[in-house]
């Protein structure tokens, strides 16, 4: 089964082999070749979203949709409840004889709050998956990994991968034509 960064422990990357590429296309090609070769505990690190990389990694973060949906429903319910409490209970004002619990008037603000909560939920889920309270990652040990936020593209294969062999995997990565190969210290 495919394991991606989101479902792997950070410690799994200790001892990983990391190939550095200068071009995004080379990275996508390398990802596809690695998948074809049977590697499953791999990940890509790029300075910007690379088209085709998610497909090459077979990333299907389908659950994120449901987190956003949950946020949407919770926000909508909260939005209605807040307006109902304010206008109907806490500070009731009779506006031309219209009902105090005026659902037509409440709908647009409730919808806006629902969208806001959907986005909040999705961002919070992303930060959780990014392991936010933890501030470092084993790959940070590599001196050149800092370039991942500038102009370099990295492919990492974790040593916990069933197909991982210290020499064989290094030779495989070399065959992909990377700029260089590094190993994360254990």
């Amino acid at each position: 089964m495919m394991r991606t960064e989101a479902t792997m422990k950070a410690e799994e990357w200790q001892g990983a082999l990391v190939a550095e590429f200068a071009e995004p296309d080379a990275l996508v090609t390398a990802l596809r070749r690695a998948r074809e070769a049977g590697y499953s505990r791999i990940d890509a690190f790029t300075p910007f979203p690379v088209e085709g990389a998610a497909e090459a990694l077979d990333l299907r973060e389908g659950w994120l949709v449901w987190v956003a949906t949950g946020g949407f429903l919770a926000g909508g319910a909260l939005g209605y409840l807040m307006q109902w409490y304010l206008n109907g209970v806490n500070y009731p004002i009779n506006v031309g004889g219209r009902p105090l619990a005026a659902w037509p008037a409440f709908t647009l603000p409730a919808f806006e709050i629902a969208v806001l909560f959907a986005v909040f939920a999705a961002i919070a889920a992303m930060l959780y998956v990014d392991r936010l309270p933890r501030l470092n990652h084993p790959l940070f040990e590599l001196e050149r990994f800092g370039l991942v936020s500038r102009d370099r593209f990295f492919l990492a294969i974790a040593p916990t991968d069933p197909r991982f062999e210290a020499e064989g995997t290094r030779a495989f990565l070399a065959g992909l034509g990377p700029a260089r190969i590094d190993q994360v210290p254990r």
Binding site: G96, R98, P104, A105, T107, L108
Partner: peptide, 12 residues
Amino acid sequence: SFMQYLVVWSGD
């Protein structure tokens, strides 16, 4: 279509 309804509802 909801805005049209809301405007008519509010105008009463």
